[in-house]
Amino acid sequence: MKTVNLSTYQLTNYLLYLADTNLVLSQRNAEWCGHGPILEQDIAITNISLDLLGQARNFYQYAAVLINQSTNQRAGSEATEDSLAYLRTEREFKNLLITELPRGDWAQTILRQFFCSVYLYLLYEQLQKSKDDQLAAIAGKSIKELTYHIKWSGEWVIRLGDGTDESRQRMLKAIENLWPYTGEFFIPAEFENEAVTGVDLSSLKQPWLQKINTVLEEAVVWSPAFGDGWGEAVFMQTGGKQGIHTEHMGFILAEMQYLQRTYPGAEW
C-alpha cells in the first residue's frame, strides 16, 4: 500500500472544499430556475449557477485524479466527479456554511452571491499563482467568469439597497442574516495550510471588507463593518469546512443526491 503524502492529502481536501462550496452554491441558485423575479434575471442567476457548476466539476475532476493516484482503488470503484458529488455524506462535505443557507428572498440570494463572488475572486487571484499547475489553471479560468458575477450581484445589491423602502428593508435583513457566516471565509481549516495552498487567508480579509463596504455604502449607506458597526463583535458561525453543517445541509443533499442513491449509476 502506498503511503499517502500529507500535502497531497491536504490538497485533495482543499480541492473538495472548493468543489463543494461551488456545487452547493450552484444548487441553491439553481432553485430560482423558473422562479426568478423577471425572465432576464432568472436567466442571469441560472447562468451564474452553471458557471459555478462548471468550476465545481473542474475541482472534483482534479480531486478524483489525486484520490485515485494515492489509494489503491478496485477497478470500477475509482473516485469520479460524480461519486464525489453524489455519494458523499453530509459530514464529508466541506462547503462554507453560507452556501447551504436557504435561498431566502431575492435580496438574500443576491447578497450571498456578492459576498461569495468577491471572496472567491480574491482567493483565485492568489491561487492563480499556485505552485500546483492544475489548481492555478482552474483558478485562472474561473476568475474570468467571476468578474461577471461580481458586477451583476454588486449592481443588484445597490439597486435593492437604494431602491424602494421594501427592497431596502429586505437588503438590511439579508445583511443581518448573512454577516455571521462571513467570518468562516478567513479562518483556515487544517487542510488550508499555506504551504499547500500558497495563500495567506488572513491577507484576503481587508480587501474583501473594502470591496463589500464600498458597495454597501452606496446601497444602504450602512455596513456592519464600518467604524461603529457590529461586524467585528458578532459571533461568527463556523464548521462547514470541518463537515459540521447547519440543519439545511441534509435537505439540500437529499434533493441533490436522491436520484443517484435510488438508482445507482443512472445516466441521462
Binding site: 432576464e40 447562468n47 451564474i48
Partner: peptide
C-alpha cells in the same frame, strides 16, 4: 444592453 447574461454562457442580450 438588456442583460449581461443571455441564452448561453457566452452571450449577452
Amino acid at each position: 444592453l438588456i442583460s449581461r447574461f443571455g441564452s448561453t454562457a457566452c452571450k449577452s442580450l
